[in-house]
Simulated scan of single mutants.
Amino acid sequence: MGDAVRDVEDMKRLKLVADELHRELSGRLGRLIRLRTKLPLKESHTNGWRVELGSLGLGEPRLEVWYCEWAREGQRRLWYGFYAAQADKLRRRIAVLPESLRSVRQLNEKDMRLATGSRTDSVLKKPLGSSEYDRPIYEEFHESESEYSYFGQFGSMLPEDSENIRILVGQATGFFESVIKSRQPDAPPRESDREQDYVRVVNRHAVRQHLAREQDRLSVEHCLRRDQFRCQVCEMSFREVYGEIGNGFAEAHHVLPLAQLEESVVPSSQDLVTVCANCHRMLHRLGGEDGDISRLRRMFHRE
């Protein structure tokens, strides 16, 4: 594929992602952000393009999605995150995020170089490693007397087909939602309607901790994708049972017993397992014992 043809295809991919992401953000965060009505593609000066989706308010950080070679020259990757013309506005937000959303790497102008054969486009001197995809990265740059910054993630998947685009959009939406809805660590917890489903559990404080961990969208997205949206107890797939309406639908259950949950625990996809709604409720009725997943699996299969 020639460079010109590849560029046209890549611009189409970014436009598809941007349009889908705009729709998702409108449905989930429409009252919390100011979305743009038009989504033009602009050059990113990183061998690719970018789209401004909206902002957190006048003069506040912008929500953007990029498709470029910044992370690794020669291969474009999707990036989604926040841009701030004043770096301190992003630094303040990051300071109150939970550990699961903190940066795994920080970058600045010393980490970049001009792309091969270019006088305007930049890429990283040291490409990102595979473990750094799907993880938050903070970038801060100094230009004259100004400081601007970015906080976001590069996707490990390439937006080459509709399934990958759907997953990437889900991950990006989850990231934006988690960052925007994060509260100060000392803010009082809000009662959730979902908590009423677990009135049989005595330790309600532990339940609130448990639900907060289960709803960490980044970890959940990783868990569901890893398990291919298939219940790890009864092996049910919503897509196979209900068709297209069930595509990409499942729930995530925290495998650590409730009694073991501590404030210091940092949730990750390794702490979660994909389940259907029925098995999820049954797991909670078992009361949070070690080995509940295996126990319920034996009960279901009558082993």
Rank of each mutant, 00 (worst) to 15 (best):
T46A: 12
T46W: 07
G48L: 06
G48S: 11
W49A: 10
R50Q: 15
R50L: 15
V51R: 01
V51F: 06
E52Q: 11
L53E: 15
G54Q: 10
S55Q: 14
S55F: 09
S55P: 08
L56C: 07
L56Q: 13
G59M: 13
G59V: 09
P61W: 00
E64L: 08
E64I: 11
V65I: 14
V65H: 14
W66C: 10
W66D: 15
Y67F: 15
C68T: 12
C68W: 14
E69T: 06
W70M: 14
E73K: 01
E73T: 02
E73L: 01
G74R: 01
G74A: 02
Q75F: 08
Q75Y: 02
W79R: 08
Y80M: 13
G81R: 13
G81H: 08
F82Q: 12
F82E: 03
A84T: 00
A84G: 02
A84F: 00
A85K: 09
Q86W: 10
A87G: 13
A87F: 05
D88I: 13
K89R: 12
R91K: 14
R92G: 08
R93M: 14
R93I: 13
I94M: 09
I94H: 04
L97E: 06
P98M: 08
L101T: 03
S103Q: 15
V104W: 05
R105C: 05
R105D: 01
Q106G: 11
N108I: 00
N108L: 05
E109L: 10
E109P: 00
E109F: 04
M112P: 03
L114N: 03
A115S: 10
A115G: 03
G117T: 04
S118Q: 04
T120W: 08
V123Y: 03
L124K: 06
L124Q: 03
K125G: 00
K125Y: 00
P127N: 12
L128R: 04
L128M: 09
L128F: 12
G129I: 06
G129C: 07
S131T: 14
E132F: 04
E132L: 04
E132T: 04
Y133M: 06
Y133C: 10
R135K: 11
P136L: 02
E140A: 01
E140G: 02
F141I: 00
H142I: 11
E143N: 10
E143Y: 09
S144F: 11
S144W: 09
S144T: 12
S146L: 10
S146R: 13
S149F: 01
Y150A: 02
Y150I: 03
F151V: 01
F151S: 01
Q153D: 01
F154E: 04
L158M: 11
P159M: 05
E160A: 09
E163Q: 14
E163I: 15
R166E: 06
I167G: 01
I167W: 05
L168T: 06
V169C: 07
A172P: 14
A172M: 10
T173L: 12
T173D: 12
G174D: 01
F175M: 11
F176A: 07
I180H: 02
K181H: 07
K181A: 07
K181M: 11
Q184T: 03
P188F: 03
P188G: 07
P188W: 09
P189D: 02
E191F: 09
S192C: 09
D193P: 02
D193S: 11
